[in-house]
Design a binder for these strands. Structure first.
Lengths: 349, 349
DNA sequence: TTTTAATATGCAATCGATTGTTTAAAATTA
DNA sequence: TAATTTTAAACAATCGATTGCATATTAAAA
């Protein structure tokens, strides 16, 4: 019972003995159409189960009403939430979302972005992969290419700083600073840092916050307490084992990269019989759902992910409206929130 | 520096003094084109940064190369994973995904589906919302409408049984049966069931598995141990309080609806000082990430979500190939796996 | 009653790519 | 050399909707 052929405005037009243009005008409620014939057209469209062909419409109008989103992983809480936020806004505006995941792979990211450019999307929203080194030459050519095509580009969270685009980020440095300050308040003296790949700005900023907090509180920066590239659960665990093996091990660990990394820390601590938070304080980053479920629950930083997604989407529509007053570059910074849980609370209230 | 106008095959054609048709043939590698001119065309296309306008191409070819996906929530682990799986397959085939979330709301689901039909997507993949009661009259009209438009419809996990479509499901009854059998093996005698809205087939099947297992093991079905509509964390907790308040409370609870519900059970147990698994066994459903992080970790059922997504996507392409041998209805059932963790293990090995 | 303005609708081009049909040129065969 | 086949490229229609312009009709103003 498959109707191979779909109803078009021509079908409606010929059935009623009018022209397609009138049908179009009636359907779009534009220009002059007699009230009676308009009603008739609308009724007939309904009867014939007419659905506008968006391809044709958008081709004519020169827009695709489609927004492309590229994230490292869609099944990661933070990104899934951002996407949910974006979707909520764009859906209401009648825009569609094309979702791609880079899987933290540079080549897949490039390919995804190119596909979206090919699709003539109106806007590309991206959080770059860990392999997208913004310092390296030509490494961001695919993003520059987006701009060259006159497509709006919005970066969020993991952004390539030097590219002049719209950006929505968290104030990572501030959040990091607050987390460390809180730990110092709790009496921790040797706070270690698990840092992420420094080619990503977010990880540099988080490190800066850490350094700044130590400095402000007159505490020394101890090199052996800073572990590079510990941004997965496994690497976090590995880093923790290394730290605990030191002659003077830390009494707190800030897993600045993610909650997954913090989870690695917690698991090693548990396995080694080290008490959290008494002997070791732990703080993660992102406020993944599981952080309040672990035992003890993990102190972390909430990035208002759904809200971030909404902000990104709204930014697009807002910029679209004042397309004449072109803002080449604009950054919105959202202040994240420190969520204090058991893993860093060793003082009685 | 925004090039308002993008390069088209006409630009390439006029620059080289050939016709657009030749350019098209060269680009698509079809028909006759002189090897030399083809090279020239390809080179010029590259130089002018040409990108095919997919809208025009698809309009002409009568396909959209786009697949729509509707799920209750994209930021829920199970669905995010399924989508990741779908994306992995469709991306390789050059298809795009339009993602919509119904937010468990019937009206939003209808609206989403209609939008996708409007978009002339080639296929719609859906897991229906909890409000989509397949028994009620006309409640699935929006899905029937998809079929009427000749659009392929694939349902997964939460399916409307009576609709003749392709389906990919889990063998819920079997999984449920195994879970209960395992609990009986562990010596639990009074096993309660937290059931989900019975208008959804998956929840009916899970209940059936529960009943079947009790029967097979010669255990009575006790009505007061079956709690209706306990499918969120809060409702799960509420149900648990009710169960624990019975004169003869259960010694195990199967949260057949979700791991979130199981989490509610666990939290109430902890708060009440009831020991898990010694005094109370708990089993969830879905193998959410957090189930191995809680203390104690939660026994649950893995649905192979990513794999399910891949299966759905592959099913589409497969059916597309033998479009002549139209399979109106076809169901693929994936056998889920019981993941035994601490929350139900009270016997020494 | 004539002029002007407002309304209704038709005509035809356009968006960019694809493709069946023709025509022209080159290569092959008889 | 003429007839036939193969290759190359142009021509023109098509996909479905939109829209500027032209024409016709009606209503309002002079």
């Amino acid at each position: 019972m498959k109707p191979k052929k779909r109803t078009t405005i021509y079908d409606i037009a010929s059935k009623l003995g009018v022209t397609p243009s009138s049908v179009s005008r009636a359907l779009n409620n534009t220009g002059y159409v007699n009230e009676t014939t308009k009603k008739l057209i609308l009724k007939t469209a309904e009867e014939l189960n007419y659905k506008r062909n968006i391809l044709a419409s958008n081709l004519r109008k020169g827009e695709s009403k489609t927004i492309g989103v590229v994230v490292p992983r869609i099944n990661q809480n933070f990104f899934a939430n951002v996407i949910a936020g974006i979707e909520e806004v764009t859906y209401k505006k009648g825009y569609n979302l094309i979702i791609c995941q880079s899987n933290e792979d540079y080549d897949k990211e490039v390919q995804s972005v190119n596909t979206l450019v090919n699709q003539h999307v109106d806007c590309i929203i991206i959080s770059i992969s860990v392999e997208t080194n913004s310092d390296e030459t030509n490494n961001c050519r695919h993003l520059q290419n987006v701009l060259d095509h006159g497509i709006q580009l919005i970066q969020f969270d993991r952004v390539a700083d030097e590219l002049e685009t719209l950006k929505v980020i968290n104030d990572n440095e501030q959040a990091s600073y607050e987390a460390i300050s809180h730990m110092i308040d709790q009496g921790y003296k040797r706070i270690a840092l698990l840092e992420g790949p420094q080619n990503l700005a977010i990880f540099r900023q988080r490190k800066n916050g850490y350094l700044l907090a130590l400095e402000k509180h007159g505490m020394p920066v101890i090199d052996e307490l800073v572990i590079e590239n510990a941004w997965t659960k496994e690497l976090g665990a590995e880093g923790t084992r290394k730290l605990l093996g030191l002659t003077e091990p830390p009494d707190a660990i800030f897993a600045s990269t993610s909650d997954f990394s913090a989870l690695g820390v917690l698991e090693v601590a548990m396995a080694t019989g080290i008490q959290v938070p008494r002997q070791l304080g732990i703080c993660g980053y992102s406020n993944e759902d599981f952080t309040e479920l672990t035992y003890p629950s993990i102190t972390t930083i909430d990035q208002y992910s759904v809200n971030m997604g909404k902000t990104v989407a709204n930014l697009y529509f807002q910029e679209r409206e004042n397309a004449d007053t072109v803002a080449v570059s604009k950054t919105i910074s959202i202040k994240p929130k420190l969520i204090i849980r058991s893993s860093t609370q060793r003082l009685k209230e």
